[in-house]
Design a binder for these strands. Sequence first.
DNA 1: ATGAAAGCGCTAACAT
DNA 2: ATGTTAGCGCTTTCAT
Lengths: 325, 325
Amino acid sequence: MTTIREVAKMAGVSVATVSRVINGNGKVKQATEEKVREIIKELNYVPSAIAVSLNNKKSKTIGLMLPDITNPFFAELAKGVEEVAKENGYTVILCNTNGDLQSELDHLQVLEQKYVDGIILSSHTLSYSDVEHIATPIVSIDRTLEGNFPSVTSNNFQGAVMAVRHLLEKGCKKIAHISGPQSIRTARLRLQGYLEVVGDLDWYTEALVADGDYEIKSGYEATRTLLQMNRDIDGIFAGNDLMAVGCLKAIHSLGLHVPRDISVIGFDGINFSKITIPELSTISQPIYDMGLLATNTLLKAMEGQCYEQMVYELDVQLIERDSTK
Amino acid sequence: MTTIREVAKMAGVSVATVSRVINGNGKVKQATEEKVREIIKELNYVPSAIAVSLNNKKSKTIGLMLPDITNPFFAELAKGVEEVAKENGYTVILCNTNGDLQSELDHLQVLEQKYVDGIILSSHTLSYSDVEHIATPIVSIDRTLEGNFPSVTSNNFQGAVMAVRHLLEKGCKKIAHISGPQSIRTARLRLQGYLEVVGDLDWYTEALVADGDYEIKSGYEATRTLLQMNRDIDGIFAGNDLMAVGCLKAIHSLGLHVPRDISVIGFDGINFSKITIPELSTISQPIYDMGLLATNTLLKAMEGQCYEQMVYELDVQLIERDSTK
DNA sequence: ATGAAAGCGCTAACAT
DNA sequence: ATGTTAGCGCTTTCAT
């Protein structure tokens, strides 16, 4: 491994001079600079990021903590985060937590000791006391956190309202909801949005809400349960796209047709929602943009800038496709 | 930030002693150790990974370079990698390259200067000369690399043969193939497997192979082209699951039925293959396991152990579902 | 069993 | 314009 010392020696200058040409600060004579650059190239010298970090207490690294990278929602988010990070010279440490509190705490601990310059966090189990001691800036995604943490979310409540209204407009007379885990804020908000619209209608009963867990399988099962209890359901608002996919399958397996017999709408707008048969109508969140925004916000926080805004709640959008008619 | 010095001072010992109790080497009197631990806890002291790294030249970090984390194949891989890494006290830096050579080179450069202890690489553009100078161990996924790099792949050729034979057994009389980008080794092997089985049959013509690029859309388009030219195709082997999904959609859009009119089989066994309607028959690779194996192999390489094996080619498996009858 | 001090590779303040 | 040197936080000889 080549060090700055060897470069200095070969170039016949001091390490300070080499450091100056590398970082482009301080004065260096043209000729000297050229000579140094030449040697750097010749020796294939790359400064040790570790040594640099030890000096300036910046690792040029951010941590990204997610429940599950195989969930398309988080994968898209991660892509956005990585993109912005890279553009700004940062590197991303991926932390997959499975939504497990202990795992999250462990990861947090490691991120701290690796001196990451910032953390983007998507967690529904972490509480304020778990993160308050962390000196590094944190941006929360998909939920807000107590304390002074910026957050990037989208308008879950409003989206749910839009979804259900859409179903209503399409002529649905009895609309069910497959809810996400009520421990997760987005799931609660989406349920609230649903209730907001249908809670007062005469056909509404509690039996029209089935619990899911945001995974495909639960959408499948919830739908079958729902349809067993209420044969006249003609519209289903699934708490997310994954469950909507399961829902589509369940309806198909029952010999029914979407959207002729039952209209289905999801939430998230993951890529896969447009490849189902029929293509899924959904409320799309600007997932990739949320990743970009979260990262840019984090970057600002890291530079010590005041936040322009602490809480971003992005607009969602109704995407009408073939599963609602 | 608490340093080892403060701990030492508070405990009334030298930094060397603190270091000893942290790392559990060297002799430390029971009482001293307890005292030190107490102070560590009290001060909430966590050793700086950076400083440690500077000493022992190990960052406890590995780099993971992938074309696209939103591709379920790579997301699953990443999950496996992260899992094993975490278990072994390593952290994963995620590098998303979009399959772009320059991006890969940039990332490689950064990984080097961050002193990652190892790299897991999935690239089809990088060549030997791009990586030979890298001192850190590298494991290649999904392809082999010249030189002494261990690799983890699966049996693409054999899988393709299995896929096409399966179609034949199901009674297909004219089988087409949607190939992946021929710049990618796996795509070439799968095409070869297809040709191996049907190349000599009397109905085979070159027009039965359509080019795709491993993305959903290309599967859709290739299928429509294929079917336009050859109305009597009754079986399609798609080069991967994503294209198979596009294929399913195209067939559906043409008013035809899978598997009644046309049987379809994919390759990869990504999670999503089981949620399509109809569920997709496919050749499944042990994706998650490939991630585990690659990481374990890398870990061994990092410990300087001789490789038990340089090249792993894992078995694939035919999964018969509803898209082939 | 414990401490003092050198050194990991670099930056930045201070000299010259 | 360039060099010297003191750290950054830690590990690890080498003394004691």
